[in-house]
Amino acid sequence: MTARIANVTFHADDPAALARFWAAVMGYPEPEWLTPEEEAELRAAGLTDDDLAARAVAWDEDPAHQRFYFTRYRHEKKHRNRMHIDITPASGRHATREEVEAERDRLVGLGATVEKVLDGSWGPYPEFAIMMRDPEGNEFCLQ
């Protein structure tokens, strides 16, 4: 048996808003975190509106696609997380500069910001990527 990634988890101030952003980025449907039955069960167990608002998910329920999980985290972070995700508008190949730039424009329209453009080479190989931040400041790269 081998492991697999269950979720990419984000600590978020507003889990629902960040879930909507990432659902739009990934082309997933509008997030529906809980069914009415699940919500009723959770409320019967004593959870409040604030408890329910503390979590959200963005996913299209396709096991081949990544599930994004958002949770409110109100503790001071002592160390930075030394990873980020890379996304691409292409499937099965390197995206062209034009595709990356068009996707950058779409993501900015959704609320992302551009941190910096990486335009250079690694040895003989050209590299073009755009470092971006989601609406809550989480870094990701578009390549």
Rank of each mutant, 00 (worst) to 15 (best):
E115C: 02
V117T: 13
T48L: 00
W59P: 01
L110Y: 09
H11G: 14
A12W: 01
E41M: 03
G120L: 07
A58Y: 06
A95Q: 02
D134M: 10
Y73A: 12
P29T: 11
G123C: 09
G120Y: 05
A112W: 00
V114D: 02
I130F: 08
K77T: 14
D86P: 02
V8K: 00
P124I: 07
E76T: 05
D14W: 01
I130C: 04
H65E: 15
Y28H: 15
M26I: 07
P124C: 00
F68I: 13
A17P: 11
H65A: 12
W59D: 11
R43G: 00
M83S: 12
A23T: 10
G46P: 11
Q66A: 14
R55S: 15
P135T: 05
E41T: 10
D13I: 09
E32P: 02
D119P: 00
L52H: 10
P126S: 08
P15W: 09
A53W: 06
V57L: 13
H79A: 14
L107A: 03
L18S: 00
D50S: 05
A95M: 11
A53L: 08
F70Q: 07
A54T: 03
V108Q: 03
K116F: 10
G120D: 05
D105M: 09
A44S: 12
A44N: 10
R72Q: 13
H11P: 04
W33K: 14
E30K: 10
E103V: 00
D49W: 01
K78P: 05
D49L: 03
A112K: 02
P135V: 09
M132I: 12
I87E: 02
M131G: 12
T96I: 03
R20H: 15
Y73H: 12
A40C: 02
P31A: 04
E30S: 14
S121W: 07
N81V: 14
A17R: 12
T96S: 15
R93L: 11
N7C: 06
R80E: 09
R106V: 08
P135S: 02
P63V: 08
G123Y: 05
G137I: 13
F128M: 07
L18V: 05
A45Y: 04
N81T: 13
A17G: 14
A17E: 13
R43S: 01
A53S: 11
E61F: 14
R72M: 11
R133W: 07
M132C: 12
D86R: 04
D134H: 08
A54C: 05
P63M: 13
E101A: 04
E115Y: 07
T113C: 03
K77P: 02
R72P: 07
N138D: 11
V57D: 00
E115N: 00
G27M: 05
V57P: 00
H94G: 00
A64N: 15
E39C: 06
T113K: 08
H84L: 08
D105S: 13
L42V: 02
E37D: 15
A45V: 05
A58V: 07
T88M: 06
M26Y: 06
R67K: 14
H11T: 13
